[in-house]
Design a protein around this nucleic acid. Structure first.
Lengths: 110, 110
DNA sequence: TGGCTTGTTGGCTAATTTACCAAATAGCCT
DNA sequence: AGGCTATTTGGTAAATTAGCCAACAAGCCA
């Protein structure tokens, strides 16, 4: 029986794909500290404004952030701060990788 | 000051990018229930064996799964089951999206 | 040894993603 | 109105990804 990969997995993938870029993860981490406008983020990231704007629209389309116009800037905010918690698990994977890598090296040296 | 998007964010992105595909999320979900071999997963996903094998190697390269040869099959297992917990947060984003979408519709109907 | 079964790899094409520049838009301020 | 600041959009080229087929590798068994 096929078709077990369904709408749910596609919906999940859309959200996760939206997170899957270094600059966007930086944005998420930064927004977790508080709202930021495009200019702030652009300066921190050091890319073209249009690039950052597009990253933000990817995040917004996924529903990960929302924006609020105020004065003459647009402020972006994190919608579900729980996504930051996940990075703890990602770090766990990374350190497991690092440990394993170290073991492989140790093994080869002998 | 630029360069705030650093190695950490790139490392995170690698892991998350490896998850960012419907079939791979299905695999993760399935492996969370227990180990599975390529054949099992291939049948469930309904794609070419080579395709599934490549998805598995993406997951393995990211350190999300590991494999164990036994009899004449290769069994894959989840390395850090915590990644499944994250889906709870993803669902939260999805339902926030759904709610918002409903509100927009309601608003337009008036 | 020869032939299954189980997976992985290489090659190729189509689709998607990213980043930059340039141009357009929106909201203030004078 | 006209100029400024802040941000988004369109276009485009380069890079990456996905999926299929065909070919190859490894282990088992008759």
């Amino acid at each position: 029986m096929a078709g077990k990969v369904n709408t749910k997995h596609e919906a999940w993938a859309k959200i996760i794909k939206a997170m899957a870029h270094p600059s966007r993860l930086f944005i998420i981490e930064e927004l977790n500290k508080g709202e930021r406008c495009v200019g702030d983020l652009t300066e921190m990231i050091g890319a073209d404004t249009s690039t950052v704007s597009k990253h933000l629209s990817v995040l917004k389309n996924a529903g990960l952030v929302f924006d609020e116009k105020r004065a003459n800037s647009i402020y972006y905010k994190l919608r579900c701060p729980c996504i930051i918690d996940f990075m703890g698990c990602v770090e766990e994977v990374l350190s497991a990788n690092a440990r394993e890598h170290k073991n492989i090296l140790k093994c080869c040296r002998k």
